[in-house]
Simulated assay, not measured.
Amino acid sequence: MPSPVPSSASAVQPFTMGPALLFCPADRPERFGKAADRSDAVILDLEDAVAPADKPGAREAILAQLGAAKLDPASTIVRVNPVGTPEFELDLQTLAKTPYRTVMLAKAESAEQPRSLEGYQVIALCETAAGIVNAAAIAAEPNVVGLMWGAEDLLASLGGLSSRNDDGGYRAVALHSRSAVLLAAKAAGKEAIDSVYVNIPDLEGLMAESADAVASGFGAKACIHPNQVAVVREAYAPSPEAVAQATELLEAAAAAGTGVFQFKGRMIDGPILKHAQATLRRAGLARDAS
């Protein structure tokens, strides 16, 4: 049975990617509006956050709230069940009746899978060994707009026990997978989303991991609790000092008019200027160094 395709009346809208994405179980419609208000984008979850027996009710809840919650399609993602499952087909039948056109595909494992989501923008969630190995091919698909990786499902697919060491840091295989997804996404010109931080009370650990995500190039980080959103946003927002330094550097580059120059004792070239531009983009002050 072919998957439902959105009608032309429900054209794909550009998706607004913010730094803090918040998962919300799709069977908890009373939380939809709050989750959307407290985050940069809400992920209505039809997969792991919903028990198998509750999935029909979750799909009904998404349809029932359309007239009341008024979630913005440009900042609403729906995580669907994996391709090949009966739940996936039922999820798409529901989505076809909504204005939501950005889909997070759980357990994405091949380039062929996003093709079954014609008419949708796809965030491919690479959270199995096959998904990590095929991340580059998945990212190259035209309707894929981003990649996310999932640590715990990945380790489960490997037969492992935990993605983290006793000190809270990721195991080597998780770090490798995180880097592989980031590189695959960026090589294809797509966005990369960092995995969730499951230790909800540990906001200090979340801040450290979010700061590393920013510095590494992830465009966003997923959250599983509203209290995590402010921490992620703080990590992604450059400090006034960083903005001032980046502005001064780019102004100096414009005045120098050369490819390489010295600034406050440092050699400055193209990559350093790109770092400064990235800082200003995150501050909403993007400017050209030329």
Score class of each variant (00 low, 15 high):
Leu280Gln: 00
Leu273Met: 06
Val260Thr: 01
Pro240Met: 13
Ile193Asn: 11
Ala276Arg: 02
Ala244Ser: 07
Leu175Thr: 13
Ala174Arg: 02
Ala230His: 11
Gln228Val: 10
Asn227Asp: 14
Ala254Asp: 11
Pro238Met: 06
Tyr197Pro: 08
Phe261Cys: 00
Met148Val: 12
His275Glu: 07
Ile193Glu: 10
Val198Arg: 04
Ala252Asp: 08
Leu182Ala: 12
Ala174Glu: 04
Ala192Met: 08
Arg178Cys: 07
Ala222Cys: 02
Gly265Val: 02
Ile224Trp: 01
Gly217Cys: 15
Glu204Tyr: 00
Tyr197Ala: 06
Lys190Tyr: 08
Ala185Asn: 06
Tyr170Ala: 01
Val181Trp: 04
Glu152Tyr: 11
Gly159Asn: 11
Met148Gln: 06
Thr279Leu: 12
Ile193Val: 15
Asp288Arg: 04
Asp202Lys: 12
Arg282Trp: 01
Asp194Ala: 03
Ala180Ile: 14
Asn227Leu: 06
Lys190Gly: 03
Pro240Val: 13
Ala276Pro: 03
Ser157Gly: 15
His225Ile: 06
Ser177Arg: 14
Ile200Gly: 03
Asp153Phe: 02
Arg233Trp: 03
Val260Gln: 00
Phe218Leu: 02
Leu273Thr: 07
Thr279Val: 15
Gly168Asp: 04
Glu241Val: 03
Asp167Ile: 05
Leu203Met: 09
Trp149Ala: 02
Ala187Pro: 11
Ala253Ile: 07
Arg281Cys: 02
Asp288Thr: 06
Lys186Met: 05
Gln277Val: 13
Asp194Arg: 09
Lys274Asn: 05
Leu147His: 11
Leu183Ala: 15
Arg281Phe: 02
Lys274Ile: 10
Val214Ile: 05
Ala185Ile: 15
Ala255Glu: 13
Val214Arg: 07
Tyr236Glu: 00
Asp202Ile: 11
Asp269Tyr: 00
Ser179Pro: 08
